[in-house]
Write a protein that binds this DNA or RNA. Structure first.
Lengths: 228, 228
DNA sequence: CTTGTATAACTACCATACTAGTATAACTAA
DNA sequence: TTAGTTATACTAGTATGGTAGTTATACAAG
């Protein structure tokens, strides 16, 4: 368990959530590489908590298919499953197409301002090469769309289904992806939402979410041990 | 805890899953009414298992928002949240629209036969007034579509998001819903898939899933204590 | 060197004990 | 009677101990 590090800033929330988020971060960030063995005992010792909250965190993570728990045998960080990535992308595409249409209709000045601010930040981050921050802002952009339409739970569900995809994105991040396209697409979507052009917005969103299809196979070749 | 009954036929699976499915069934079937107080201790005693697996089942159910867990205070069966029902319906509509299109393209003889068999069974059940069986067959019909497209995990996720909606369906079941429409719509969808008419299939599916919008408000008036 | 077997170590699962926090009931004072 | 306070019972969260089952290792036989 070389990978597990203790996050000292544990301010609020239950121990269970602390363990859950700690592990999830490590897995998504690929600090805990796919295929790594991991056990309740190890984690509880490293994080200095009892096994019960660890168990419960494991349970949650296995539901997201980030951990594979094999009774009486062991637990491993799951390999990235491209079919799962595709399912996640499929859901995102079809849901967000509909959400962005709704956003065109219901977004008021305040919400549009939130979007605009986000896009501005993204442009700033490109100049400064803050890729990890861009990663967050990307999520934030889409979250605003869902939350503005009163569909935050839908967003949370999508996030869960996209855990495997997030790891892929992390690989791309390392591989120095070209963020200019992504940000310009965000800007485009924002403009269409502001102009309330439903069809254009939908189309822009669709092509934005099709982008992720690229490079899958290439990444698989480059990091074969990470994939199924 | 009058509602909890013990299912004797506990054949396989872990204790945790046994508790989870037992409780989930009771909640969906409204044997455990929305708003009911419930505690780990009570369940563990009634089901004659320890508190640990009960806790883990609670955790899972609270993620589905079927239980509300309040630390150091108590746990209650959540009230039916119509906004959550709408979110679930929204997801279903937009995903299944796309899935049924894909089904038109990829379904082979074997899968089409499965669908046909299912629809036949439904017609049989109408004659015999087996409403609960119809309830299951309805789910089965949609599941076949997802599984045939290699998107079983998407279906599972949708099932989770539709827990609240399922309770609404159960209320309608009691209120003696007219199943003829539903079954004929299923038949229509099947026909379009068999004929590979993508657009017609999508349209049929859309109107099928819009059906659930009816009666919401009426049911809320009739069972006010069950709703938020 | 390979294969079959016994054994030891390790795993997650489940049961139970303990703790800290909450809500309600009982009680006191006005 | 009512408002405020204390005490008690009850809750979920956490810790720990025991169990059944799996895996890997060591060793013996071919």
């Amino acid at each position: 368990m070389k990978g597990i590090t203790i996050i000292n800033t544990r301010i609020n929330g239950s121990t269970r959530d602390f363990v859950y988020y700690t592990l999830r971060n490590q897995i998504i960030n690929l600090k805990l590489e796919p295929g790594t063995k991991i056990s309740e005992k190890e984690v509880s010792e490293k994080l200095k908590v009892s096994r019960t909250p660890v168990r419960e965190a494991f349970l949650k993570l296995s539901q997201e298919e980030l951990l594979g728990v094999y009774p009486q045998s062991g637990t491993i960080v799951t390999l990235i499953d491209l079919s799962l990535v595709e399912e996640g992308r499929f859901i995102r595409e079809n849901i967000e197409k509909a959400v962005v249409r709704e956003a065109c209709q219901v977004f008021d000045k305040n919400l549009l301002f939130q979007l605009e601010t986000n896009v501005r930040f993204q442009e700033l981050c490109i100049e400064k090469d803050s890729h990890h921050k861009l990663f967050e802002l990307d999520d934030e952009f889409h979250r605003i769309l869902f939350e503005g339409c009163g569909k935050i739970r839908t967003w949370n569900m999508i996030r869960q289904m996209n855990s495997h995809f997030d790891r892929l994105r992390m690989l791309r991040l390392v591989a120095n992806q070209d963020w200019n396209i992504v940000v310009s697409q965000h800007k485009e979507i924002y403009n269409y939402v502001a102009k309330k052009s439903l069809d254009h917005a939908e189309q822009a969103m669709t092509s934005h979410l099709k982008l992720v299809n690229l490079e899958k196979e290439e990444l698989k070749k480059r990091y074969p041990g990470f994939f199924e």
